[in-house]
C-alpha cells in the first residue's frame, strides 16, 4: 500500500511528472519536490490561507488536497504569477503601502487579491475584507492590505477605461 504513484500535472506552465506518496499534500509536493517555496505552510488545516495556489483556474488551499488529487490539473503558484507579471502591480502596491511586515502571509494574500481582482468591477472595502476572511495576517492588522488591494483595483479600472477610450477614439 501507499507506494508512490506517478502523477503528471502542469505547474507554472511546465509539465511535471514524478512519483509521489499519496499522503503528500500538494503544498509539501510544491515546496519539497519542486522547490517552489513561495507557497507557505502555516496551519496545514485550511485556516490561515498562506498556502493558496491556483488549481484549474480557482484559488484553493494546497494543504487541503493531496498531490495525487491534482494529477492532470493545471497549477499556478505565486512564483508563476510573479514571473508572468500578473501581480506586479499588487506587489508594488503592497510594498508602497507597507502591507506586509514579516511577509509569511503575503503569497496567500496576493493569491486572494489576484482572484478577487480578476472579477469585473471595483470591489468595496467590505468585499475585499470578505475575500480576505480566509487569510490570516498576524502583523499588519489588515488595514494596509485592504488599502493596497483597493488602490490596485482603482488603478486597473482607470487603466481599462483609458484603454477603452483610446480604442474608441482611434
Amino acid at each position: 500500500m501507499s507506494e508512490p504513484i506517478n502523477v503528471s500535472m502542469t505547474v507554472n506552465g511546465s509539465r511535471v511528472s514524478c512519483g509521489v506518496e499519496p499522503r503528500s499534500t500538494l503544498a509539501d509536493f510544491l515546496r519539497q519536490t519542486l522547490a517552489l517555496t513561495g507557497t507557505h505552510t502555516g496551519c496545514e488545516m485550511g485556516v490561515c490561507g498562506a498556502c493558496l495556489v491556483v488549481v484549474d483556474g480557482r484559488v484553493v488551499h494546497s494543504c487541503l488536497m493531496f498531490a495525487v488529487q491534482a494529477g492532470g490539473s493545471v497549477i499556478e503558484t505565486v512564483e508563476g504569477l510573479t514571473e508572468r507579471a500578473a501581480i506586479a502591480d499588487l506587489q508594488d502596491a503592497f510594498h508602497l503601502r507597507n502591507a506586509l511586515q514579516c511577509g509569511f502571509c503575503t503569497p496567500g494574500m496576493l493569491m486572494t487579491a489576484y482572484s478577487l481582482l480578476s472579477q469585473p468591477g471595483i470591489p468595496t472595502r467590505d468585499e475585499i475584507r470578505d475575500a480576505l476572511s480566509g487569510n490570516y495576517c498576524r502583523c499588519t492588522g489588515y488595514e494596509a492590505i485592504v488599502d493596497a488591494i483597493e488602490n490596485v483595483a482603482r488603478d486597473r479600472d482607470a487603466a481599462s477605461i483609458a484603454q477603452t477610450r483610446e480604442e474608441a477614439g482611434a
Binding site: 500500500m1 499519496p22 499522503r23 499534500t25 496545514e44 488545516m45 485550511g46 488551499h61 494543504c63 487541503l64 488536497m65 493531496f66 495525487v68 488529487q69
Partner: peptide, 26 residues
C-alpha cells in the same frame, strides 16, 4: 471516499481519521 476533501483532508492531517484507502470520486 473523497470529493473536495475540505473537511476530510484536515481530519486526516489531524489523524482524527486514518483510512487505508482513499477513493477519489471527484
Amino acid at each position: 471516499y473523497v470529493a473536495g476533501g475540505q473537511s476530510l483532508v484536515p481530519a486526516l492531517a489531524l489523524r482524527l481519521q486514518a483510512p487505508q484507502l482513499l477513493i477519489d470520486i471527484a
